[in-house]
Design a protein around this nucleic acid. Sequence first.
DNA 1: AAAATTACGGAGTGATCGATCCGAATGTGG
DNA 2: CCACATTCGGATCGATCACTCCGTAATTTT
Lengths: 217, 217
Amino acid sequence: MSPAGRPRAFVIEGVLEAAMRLFWEQGYEATSMAQLREATGLSSASLYGAFGSKQGLFERAVEHYLAGPGSVTDVIADEALSPREAVARMLHGSIDMQTDTSHPRGCLVALSGIVRAPGDDDAAVRRTIAARRAMDRARIRACVVRGVATGELAGETDVDGFTSMIHGFLLGVSTQVCDGTPARDLHAAADAALAAWHAPSARAAGARAADARAAGV
Amino acid sequence: MSPAGRPRAFVIEGVLEAAMRLFWEQGYEATSMAQLREATGLSSASLYGAFGSKQGLFERAVEHYLAGPGSVTDVIADEALSPREAVARMLHGSIDMQTDTSHPRGCLVALSGIVRAPGDDDAAVRRTIAARRAMDRARIRACVVRGVATGELAGETDVDGFTSMIHGFLLGVSTQVCDGTPARDLHAAADAALAAWHAPSARAAGARAADARAAGV
DNA sequence: AAAATTACGGAGTGATCGATCCGAATGTGG
DNA sequence: CCACATTCGGATCGATCACTCCGTAATTTT
């Protein structure tokens, strides 16, 4: 069973947790291997042996984030919920997560790898994060499309425009959280954004939402 | 008149323009003095003689940005406009500016100095940018307050919540622009956000049964 | 014209970056 | 007990970081 050779004396998950927090607080560029060494208590050889490079460690840390705190946005893909309910839960859930004081502020995906790097060396990092943002956006768009299909949203709704409004607000929450905007204001802001989600036929929308709630979370 | 001594052989404005573009594309941390030297054609001695430090150059470059492309948001403070019109012009104007291909994408203020730096050395940089974001926010809030006063907005409008919705969307536009979202979608998104400006009190009390799922470790 | 003042190009500062190498340590399969 | 494989701590690599120093050039002031 054991892969032969000296077994590693640390747990991968613990290292990823520490690395995730550092990258979350400081971003990829600003986080140094020296800090990662200190935070994990490991030597360079151990880190490079396990993850190959700083980029490799970052990508593993992002996966760790997506499986943990970052998973709050996955509710958007729950087709058992009404589209509006799914979007609402994603926004409020993300705000709750980002303002949770038990870990760094904001969203790792929204904050990392936005600006271009000096060389081409970390273009892969930016692509990794940008791909995740694109996925979130696609999921929101699918919800908007569903909303139009179910009649929750007016038929003449600009799908890409409405998607950009929701996604843009979600992305902007991270910056606001880092700047200290209170969670209360952000929740109220999410409600304001969702207010645009008015139904032309409130009856059908309400029935669908009720069904979704009855189905449970 | 002349300040005695050898006159400088370059124009400050030209250097600030080049530096602004580099910082705009890459952010403060990722931009090196070597790049700034190459882009400006100046030596280290000239740059440090004129600006004192990398931070000093950055702050001057930010001022240059705010007086140039960044000035598009100033329309928000124009009290000759109706509050809604002022917000609308700011949003659409900012989108036009950020998607203009004659300069780097996005907004320098929204993109720079969000994540924490490794040391305390550039805390001043983050504070400079964050202060500008706070000013934009305050101006938006003043518009919302005016809107309630003039009756454009419902009296029971959550002022800070509505402000956060507009400001959050504005901040999120930068990330979307960097990710390649078309200007058309963003303009439509701004309209969608502004649609809430007319929305009467039909706002649902945020049904956020939200989660507790959250935050990993 | 001489002195004083400022800007210039370019080499060089210590520090830190990500990444690698090495010998010792600790396992498994024969 | 013995190769073999893998990980360990620690020293170290060249490159690059922001920044400074020095000798020289170009002006104004005396």
